[in-house]
Nucleic acid binder design. Structure first.
Length: 245
DNA sequence: AATGGATACAACCGCTATTGG
DNA sequence: CCCAATAGCGGTTGTATCCAT
């Protein structure tokens, strides 16, 4: 048994929104504010699904939307953010005031992807296309494993015994390697109190990794002490997203 | 002028995450 | 803790428009 539908599908309109529907939705939200999308259509006198209303408002009717073409600066910023965040369109959109995730997703699929391909860059990995199928050389963890493979056939019986013993006491190349992977910000030097002002100056051009990703508020960060993407300076500076690893 | 393919983008669908009873 | 309702996200589809033939 699945979940009940979010709305009565039999009595809802689909497809393109009419001017009248837009006006009703805008008028209702101006009066009552956003939220409670499920009950909104009925209250606003719209024969639409709440989900559809929400999407229409967010992607098209919101007054703070920046209409018009994506600028070259925005274009480059989208590429940069995508290389860091992947297809997290809502996160990317959050860094582009007035742009929606849907708009950016569409723009990516129609313009940027093709542009990157024409530049010989794989849009998925942001690496040169010819690197895509590059052979990955694996290194055996156990010392002598390669040699074992090479000389596995036609051995004398006493040597075989010797090999068995060797295998029992096989030395591992990386004995301390822990494959319990976890995610954490990369290592950063712990600064002394008197170093912090110097560090902050340096960070006028860049932010710490946590603040770059928006994981931590840069205004609360003792190293960044300002805003993400130049909020501190009032200038949108996507160059601060440059990673240094 | 008619037609068919390419393109752009609005809207939908299905899924997961979050919230509240 | 459980479960249903809701919000939000990302992938996909539908359709209007453009352009070449």
């Amino acid at each position: 048994m699945g979940r009940s539908p979010c709305c009565e599908k039999a009595h809802t309109n689909k497809g393109a929104w009419t001017k009248e529907e837009d006006e009703r939705l805008v008028a209702y939200i101006k009066l009552h504010g956003e939220g409670c999308w499920r009950s909104l259509p009925k209250a606003a006198g719209l024969l639409r699904c709440g989900k559809s209303c929400r999407l229409r408002w967010i992607n098209y009717l919101r007054p703070d939307l920046k209409r018009g073409n994506i600028t070259d600066e925005e274009d480059e910023l989208i590429i940069k953010l995508h290389s860091l965040l992947g297809n997290k369109w809502s996160l990317i959109a959050a860094r582009l005031p007035g742009r929606t995730d849907n708009e950016i997703k569409n723009y990516w699929n129609t313009h940027i992807r093709r542009k990157l391909v024409s530049r010989g860059i794989d849009p998925a990995t942001h690496r040169p296309l010819h690197e895509r199928h590059a052979a990955i050389k694996t290194v055996p963890f156990a010392v002598g494993e390669e040699e074992d493979k090479n000389q596995s056939s036609g051995e004398e019986p006493e040597k075989e015994e010797e090999e068995k013993e060797k295998k029992k006491t096989k030395k591992w190349r990386c004995p301390d390697l822990n494959l319990d992977l976890c995610i954490s910000p990369p290592f950063q030097k712990a600064f002394e109190e008197d170093e912090i002002s110097t560090v902050k100056e340096g960070l006028a051009l860049s932010l710490c990794f946590s603040c770059r990703l928006g994981v931590k508020s840069s205004s609360e960060c003792k190293y960044c002490g300002g805003g993400f993407l130049g909020q501190r300076t009032g200038v949108l500076d996507y160059r601060s997203l440059e990673t240094n690893y």
